[in-house]
Amino acid sequence: MTDHYAAFDRLKFDRPAPWVLRITISNPGKSNAVTPAMHRQLEDVWAAIDADPQTRVTIITGEGRAFCAGGALDDMPSGGVLDPNQQVSKDFNNAVRLVRGIIDARKPIVSAINGAAVGAGLAIGLLADVSIASKTAKLLDGHVRIGVTAGDHAAIVWPLLCGMAKAKYYLLTNRPMTGEEAERNNLVSLAVDAEVLEATSIEVASELAASAPTAVRMTKYVLNHWLRQQSAIFDLSAAFEMVNFSGAEATEAMAAMAEKRAPDFKSDVTF
């Protein structure tokens, strides 16, 4: 790989086909959970790809058996270091940059969801222009489970992809679904057997790379305007999510996960 991507040392890159760049999310032993440094690189890499004349299409996948487990729990916002307003602003801006970076990327993105995709990892997988999941992959939004609003991508893209009834059911109950179920619910473009996922993602990416680049990019830009029109919904969901991180519910939910017990939410609803 050339120096064009040298700054993105928390990600892996290769070229599986002409004009196709593949990004592999890699955090061995942690199901490819996103650290703060990796998050920043995932925010910025799309602009670098748009400026790369050797790339027309990007594939993004995960290393090993997982796609991406979302934000690393030990790196979740917890307060105490920054002023609360600064912490909320910082985390809000980071989330916005990741989601809008993918939506505004000019070149098409194909996700190859090879295993567990949670939180920010699921955002990356579902915001791709063509999302391809292994039939056995496990997809979980995860936000309510850790005591925060379903922010990131969920509120803007789930109702558009699978309808409001399914969006509410899965986001509120936080029930997982397999890749096969996700295809049936129109949450992903395709679900394929695990052994052909890589080949299928390369085939689709190569087909896109062989198409008229300007026409493909302009078509993507127009279609993603459906998402841009929901910017007010996205901003509100992301803001609620960041505020929730400093609350007692998130503290209890994450402590319960770490201790492998059921959470005990003592306070009544105040919203």
Rank of each mutant, 00 (worst) to 15 (best):
S131C: 12
Y170S: 00
R184Q: 15
G179Y: 07
S201D: 04
I146A: 08
H143K: 06
T149Q: 14
L160K: 14
S189T: 15
K138V: 14
P176N: 04
L171Y: 00
N185M: 15
L171A: 01
S131I: 08
T178F: 00
M177V: 08
L187F: 07
E183H: 13
E180V: 06
I146D: 06
L190Q: 12
V130K: 11
A154P: 02
L140F: 00
R175F: 09
K168C: 14
G142C: 07
T149K: 11
L172F: 14
S189N: 12
M177S: 01
P159K: 03
L139P: 00
A194N: 12
K135F: 03
V130Q: 11
D152R: 07
C162D: 03
D193L: 10
L190E: 12
N174Q: 15
L172M: 15
L172V: 13
E180D: 13
L160Y: 12
D141Y: 01
A155Q: 14
V196D: 08
G151T: 09
K135Y: 02
D152K: 03
V148W: 06
T178V: 01
E181P: 06
A150S: 15
A137M: 09
I132Q: 00
L190N: 06
A199C: 03
L160I: 15
N185K: 13
G142R: 04
K168R: 15
G142S: 10
K168G: 10
V144F: 11
V130E: 13
S134E: 01
A133Q: 02
K135M: 10
N174C: 11
A167T: 10
E181D: 11
P176E: 07
H153V: 11
R175G: 13
T149P: 06
V192A: 05
A154D: 00
I202H: 02
V130Y: 10
E183L: 08
V188T: 02
T136V: 14
G147A: 07
S131W: 04
P176G: 05
